[in-house]
Computed example of a mutant assay.
Amino acid sequence: MSKSSFAPTRRQALGLGLALAGAAAMNVVPGFRLLAQAQAAVPPTAQKIADHFSSVKSMTGEFVQFGPRGEQTGGKFYLERPGKIRFNYDGSSNFQVISDGQSVVILNKKMRTSDLYPLSKTPLKLLLADRIDLSGDKVRAVKEEDDLTTIKLADKSVFGNSTITMMFDPKTYELRQWTITDAQGKDTTVMIFNVKEGVSFAANTFAIDYAANRVLNTKKSSR
């Protein structure tokens, strides 16, 4: 699988799960079976997949990211539940996205930028929760096919009109990819492969340097 060497912009990195609240209404992907917010129960298959994915406490692997204009990049990712994830992008920019369980930072060492967001206000909150919560009206749609089960989630109170659509292997319940649709209706898709589960990480794998973040943003604001 080939990957171009372009360095993602902040907006493109947001597609990994940081699309923030907006005002535009989202349209459900054609072909999905809608779940009425106040009446339809969560399909048993969706709950089984959510329970299995919640039971995976750590994983690592490679990813390829496709931006809303067809941009493509990739790298390696590390995940530890609850709340922790790290994406190391390929290329010379040393671009990283890190969540330490409380905050998410988008770090571009080459450009010396560091943008910080609360994890609780991003779609990553649903992906990284200790237990994937399908209660209330979070499940917008489910599509069951022979080779793929797709679950579309939203939480308007957390990240507005952004949504996260996760795709799983229907036999193993393993996560294959997810798509973040932001409030403007733009999609960013992340595919993962060569995944290993049940791995251990160094203590600083998900560490965010808050002091460096403050220094970089103080310098930026003083320009």
Rank of each mutant, 00 (worst) to 15 (best):
K84H: 07
V29H: 05
G31L: 11
G31K: 13
A24N: 14
M59C: 07
P30C: 02
Q47F: 01
S93P: 00
F66C: 09
P44L: 06
Q102T: 13
I49H: 01
M59L: 12
G70W: 09
V42T: 02
S58A: 13
V97A: 06
V64T: 14
S93D: 12
N27I: 14
F32L: 08
R33G: 06
P43G: 01
V104L: 15
V42E: 02
E80K: 15
M26C: 01
A41E: 15
L16Y: 04
A41C: 02
L14P: 03
P68N: 13
Q37I: 06
P68Y: 11
H52C: 01
G15K: 02
T45Q: 11
L107T: 07
N108G: 11
S92V: 14
F95N: 09
G31D: 10
F53K: 00
R86S: 09
Q72I: 14
G83Y: 06
D51H: 06
R33I: 15
R33D: 11
G101I: 13
I106G: 01
S55R: 05
R33E: 14
F66D: 04
A46P: 06
V64L: 11
S92R: 13
T73W: 10
R81A: 10
A23L: 07
I49M: 01
L14Y: 04
K57W: 05
E80Y: 09
I49F: 06
L20M: 15
A24P: 00
I49D: 00
P30W: 05
Y78L: 02
G83C: 07
Q12D: 14
Q102V: 13
T60P: 00
Q37Y: 12
A40R: 10
N88M: 03
A50V: 07
S99N: 01
H52Y: 15
Y78D: 08
V105L: 11
G83R: 04
G83F: 08
N27F: 12
P82R: 10
Y89I: 02
R81N: 12
V42A: 03
F32Y: 11
V28E: 06
P68F: 08
S58C: 04
A24Q: 15
R69I: 02
L34P: 00
E71N: 04
V105H: 05
T73G: 13
A19P: 00
L79P: 01
Y78T: 01
G101A: 13
P68L: 08
G70I: 10
G74N: 09
K76Q: 14
S103Q: 12
